[in-house]
Design a binder for these strands. Sequence first.
DNA 1: GCAAATTAATGATTTATTCAAG
DNA 2: CTTGAATAAATCATTAATTTGC
Lengths: 222, 222
Amino acid sequence: MGSSSMKVHNQFARGLLWEHEPLSSLTLGCCNRLRPLAPKLPDTNTAAAATTAAFDLKSFIKPESGPRKLNHKPETIQVEPALPGGTRWNPTQEQIGLLEMLYRGGMRTPNAQQIEQITAQLEKYGRIEGKNVFYWFQNHKARERQKQKRNSLGLSHCPRTYTHTIANINLDTKGHGEEEEDSPKKRKCMTWTFESLEEDKKHCKEEGDKTLELFPLHPEGR
Amino acid sequence: MGSSSMKVHNQFARGLLWEHEPLSSLTLGCCNRLRPLAPKLPDTNTAAAATTAAFDLKSFIKPESGPRKLNHKPETIQVEPALPGGTRWNPTQEQIGLLEMLYRGGMRTPNAQQIEQITAQLEKYGRIEGKNVFYWFQNHKARERQKQKRNSLGLSHCPRTYTHTIANINLDTKGHGEEEEDSPKKRKCMTWTFESLEEDKKHCKEEGDKTLELFPLHPEGR
DNA sequence: GCAAATTAATGATTTATTCAAG
DNA sequence: CTTGAATAAATCATTAATTTGC
């Protein structure tokens, strides 16, 4: 821990979707789901053993190191039509209420379609995006678990009458004895979506140099 | 564990992107980034305390229980332009080689733009999607760590000549003495994208009834 | 009363773990 | 048994409560 003063900008992109949509495929800008999809190439070791050759590594290095933009944000351009208030979602009472209702109803990990619907509804009460809904369920689920665990531990000196109840809750990570529980087993397939960064890189809040080079190229004092 | 035969279809959707793109917003079908975005509503407790009222819960329950599609996949419609071979990505030698090269080059958590580029390149060598690239880096990073840790433990009886090397590796989770390491601190903002399930629900592999109800409504034996 | 300082909640991201296809 | 895929746990970071000094 501590002591790390790296300034590497890590992050990633991901986009999952439900139900094995075969053609997930990077929704670049606007519907570009017409990807060649590569004839077949089922065999993993057919032609061109020139593994590293034909691949233009150069094109990966510092994708925007050239033009460089040369401006470190001279002043507050203020262009961004960004979020009115702040950066992160600040749920309203109505939104929370509805989400909790759904949670109590048994929902734990809504799928994309459900998230869409929920988001659409919650939008009536204030700015919200799908990711907020998704995160909310993740966090709420996790924190309810924490709470359960904390309680079950702190209540080890509880009256014997409720012992069985506690025992029921006390199980390792599963079986909280209610009608909850997400999906203990059974994975599902999903689809992915990327949104291209067509629009030039916005700067996240402040943060002078954006670097954004593929290779760290010098881990910076460690 | 075991014994769970839940048929809840949990999964979720998410799509992250780099750099605080203010208008993330559900790329429904085709570029619909023109969402009202809700006037402002900065205040979290303004009007309408009718939290749970105006919300049509009904519309959430079994979103596709009505029309029902009535077909349980009568036969192999074969419509799906799905993946030729199987469901999951089967990387080719070329793809692996290039990915490892990038990894050795220091890449750990490529951002969306990088993933796009990489995917585009790797597509030349076989079917691949952005998520595969993303997952590959996640898994490879994690498994290299495991390997490192295993080695550092198992080699506690190594010849003294290489002791310093081992020591170098032996550090807790960071500082493997190379030019690697992702981003210990400093988070970045991202944007999300959902891909709507406009196209009717495909069935993931087989799996008879899709249910897809918001509320489990009877956890099924547990 | 009010605004800087501090703390508590919780939204957002990353890492670790698990599951299962091949 | 390897590893792609998915989920859960841990962590970080920002916002709102709240306290405190004036």
